[in-house]
Write a protein that binds this DNA or RNA. Sequence first.
DNA 1: CGATGGCTTGAATCGGCTCAAAGCTTGTGG
DNA 2: CCACAAGCTTTGAGCCGATTCAAGCCATCG
Lengths: 288, 288
Amino acid sequence: MLVIRARETLVATSVNLVSGHMPHMTADAPAAPREPLLVRKLYRHSPLSHRDRVGLTRALSLDIRSVRTRSTLGEAGAAPRKLAVMLEGWACCYRLLPGGRRQLVAYYLPGDICDLHTLITPRPDTSIVLLAGARVARLSREAVAALLRNHPALSRALWWDARIASSIEREWLVNLARRDARERVAHILCELIARAETVGELDGDSLAVPLMQADLADACGLTPAHLNRVLRLLREQGLIAWRDRRMLILDRSGLAELAYFSPAYLGLDERADAQTGCEATLFSPMPG
Amino acid sequence: MLVIRARETLVATSVNLVSGHMPHMTADAPAAPREPLLVRKLYRHSPLSHRDRVGLTRALSLDIRSVRTRSTLGEAGAAPRKLAVMLEGWACCYRLLPGGRRQLVAYYLPGDICDLHTLITPRPDTSIVLLAGARVARLSREAVAALLRNHPALSRALWWDARIASSIEREWLVNLARRDARERVAHILCELIARAETVGELDGDSLAVPLMQADLADACGLTPAHLNRVLRLLREQGLIAWRDRRMLILDRSGLAELAYFSPAYLGLDERADAQTGCEATLFSPMPG
DNA sequence: CGATGGCTTGAATCGGCTCAAAGCTTGTGG
DNA sequence: CCACAAGCTTTGAGCCGATTCAAGCCATCG
């Protein structure tokens, strides 16, 4: 059974990830002015020296934009974009199809890189839009190239990040193809809860969700009307509730059980060097 | 409109990719004993020296297995796998869900790497199975690490390959979520045709498809019964036909039009260094 | 020759869609 | 401070596409 049994499992995860005990983050590194969430995330999963972290932090501080809700970070069909990194707020990435159909392919939360592959894509066919007033750091390709040159360890960290992003997209694929509406919605909600938790956005049992129902529907491959009915079901089953723009998580394990949600694919507790013997050198650019 | 207008478009592509005119593949490199399709594909899209190609070719020749149909290349939940590279035959990668549901997430054709990310995944949740008697080259993690150490240019080539694989999976996601059964099936068929063409598996207007209908159904997120009905529709519309185990492509542009198929996401005519100025050094491991 | 496994088809059912109208909020201007 | 508008949410009725389950068909192989 892939089902998580009880709330404690996830809470334990969160304690480990959010509130401190990072295995190799000892007192030696008080870090730069304020380490962006991305830096902390990468460091948590992949070995980076203090110098690497400072370098990345600096690079991320050069071009920061506070952007308003519903503004765009990149249009389909345009030239290759700068790389965007979420500092605050949520965003999503979507494809438009003929007939006005829209499908989200990813949500981006603070600390996420917006579609790393976009950097080497000649003409992206996706658009990225901000879902709530957000702050974003942007990196030009030149900046990324320089970073990788000066901080080879970042290459492996980015491979790790790309793998997790890819793994999430694969989960969505399976979710869309083989689960019914209720499972689908519950699954996405579980994922958002877990991801929000690791970046400290979960406030007790409630979460500010800056999505319209249409945004959720387009992620779940449903019509807004049907998504609304599904949400009502989940409400009536006592799994969730809504107040203001917040989702109240009444029965997290029930939600996970309904969706067959298992957070392994999010890679929350992975350590890049611990898991596999040779990986440490795998995509490391420098010989040795 | 994303629709391709006429057959000529695709045929032109194929001439460029298959039968020779590779921009930087001049007479200087007669290549090793027999360059595997993977090497040719990477070289076509990403600059590799003669030495790089020979090195990769050698590495791919060390552990070759001829495996019989329906045998497995890796089970879900097992330890991280060796990296498998398709030499001949087709394979697929799938997820199993509770209730006996199965969903394919990728087809692998000759020249494809089977789930590159699997190499750094602690416990893959997917299984890979061969669809037709196939030959596969396997690389241990150590072998990959050594390759990357000795041939830094491979790192960029693999980034490219991972991006395309990821782009295909994204297309599947959208396909499953937002197209109806007919479009979905037509789309996957178009993709298989295009990919088979670039590796020389397309014989005029027919293609040997080593799939059972259940394999197609599980890729399209349909039941075998309904997939069967959809195939009949496509047959009745004069788009395709079947003889022996071969698909006859009667109206390729009609099929593409029905599916809104645009092959851009396959990256067939991309050149890694041509498209974007700085990419040449982007993920290149060596300084400079 | 029968057995097996995949293909094909039918009838009934159900989940999710479409379209439309009615509630709610939120923000804006009088 | 109220009134109105715009946009999001909620709900209903009817429909359609895909599923389920079952049976019959057709190749292939022992």
